[in-house]
Write a protein that binds this DNA or RNA. Structure first.
Lengths: 200, 200
DNA sequence: GCTATCCTTGACCGATCGGTTTCTGTTTGG
DNA sequence: CCAAACAGAAACCGATCGGTCAAGGATAGC
């Protein structure tokens, strides 16, 4: 039923390569020729496998989103330590990844910045991903508030949305920042604002 | 010394038109043909006046930044009311402008999202603009803290950077949000986090 | 060996890109 | 009236865009 050789390249790895290219140069800035060369396959294989440039782009975004969402949810729900400690660790990781020198920012944020005004399909997908992040943050915040680790007068949903916006803003600013100082300040301020009491 | 007619179009108004086009469609998405039609001048005049597409883009960004920075600084330094009230008003204005439905986000944020990895000239300009916003926020925060309107245990610089990141993040998310609820949450949380005491 | 399937290469397509140039008014100062 | 400086329209440039297509090479089952 299937004579002939198997695919000579790993499809999922090709998606990762495409993701990195889109990440670095954006959708418009990444040409079909660039993708061919980077992935190392011919154009026919590329179109046979992925259909179109846009489909490959959406697939790259989906893969990236799955990874990021999974990582954040896992980090926020780790047992054994306090919820606030989980939050601190996750925010620290985000700062390290997206706030350092030469950062490309978050691929999702870059996608939002480049989305066309009438691209409702992509907008809906991105909304969904952001909702997932927001809910993970909200669960963690509720738990931390229950344990008295976070000011109890805050609205968990508002604070969660704030953290999502903050993460995206930090990642965006990281694209033009000249060092990790700014992003460290941002995370420090976010955590300080959550703490119930403090004296310098 | 200057025979011949005056320029038949308003240069500054042309920059505003170009700004709106870049804002709506991004740099790559805006073609020279689009700019001609929108501004209403021929291509020769366009190149004679502005030099190149990129120069017109930079000029648009500069004009936008001047307007925004001016507006924020004026709003934050208004006398007669408390510094926190000024901050609340400015953040509310940002939310109204960038967080509503169909928002295009902040042009500066969009530019950051679309900047090329090796475009140091544009990156330096954007860094400068963000620094200006940060300093304006920091001055306002210091004043508010001095008046006891804001928790005194916060670091003004960290909090100012947080507000810049938050503004950019909110404006970015506004591009895919389906209503003003999210951006309102974000601003509400930011202000709640600054307040020294509260018992909802 | 034959055939079918997958792969790659590379030519090719119409369209559009940023930018230059040529031409034809048209308006102004002298 | 004339020359200089301006304007706009459009032809034109090489390059690149996303996408298609036709021709082989390689590998598998029969």
């Amino acid at each position: 039923m299937s004579p002939g050789p198997q695919k000579s390249f790993d499809v999922e790895e090709a998606v990762l390569t495409a993701r990195d290219l889109f990440w670095e140069r954006g959708y418009d800035g990444t040409g079909i020729r660039d993708l061919e060369v980077a992935i190392g396959i011919g154009r026919k294989s590329l179109y046979d496998t992925f259909g179109s440039k846009r489909e490959l782009y959406l697939r790259s975004l989906r893969k990236y989103a799955d990874t990021v969402i999974q990582s954040i949810c896992d980090g926020l729900e780790r047992e054994g330590v306090g919820a606030l400690a989980n939050l601190e660790r996750v925010l620290g990781k985000l700062q390290k990844h997206h706030g350092s020198d030469g950062s490309l920012g978050c691929l999702l944020g870059v996608a939002i910045g480049q989305i066309g005004a009438d691209d409702e399909e992509l907008a809906a997908f991105l909304r969904g991903v952001l909702d997932g992040m927001e809910q993970a943050f909200e669960r963690c915040l509720r738990e931390a508030m229950g344990a008295g680790e976070v000011r109890s007068d805050l609205q968990p949903r508002d604070a969660a949305r704030q953290l999502v916006a903050l993460s995206q803003g930090m990642a965006l600013l990281g694209r033009v920042s000249d060092g990790p100082a700014r992003s460290r300040s941002i995370i420090r301020a976010a955590l300080a604002a959550l703490r119930p009491v403090s004296s310098s």
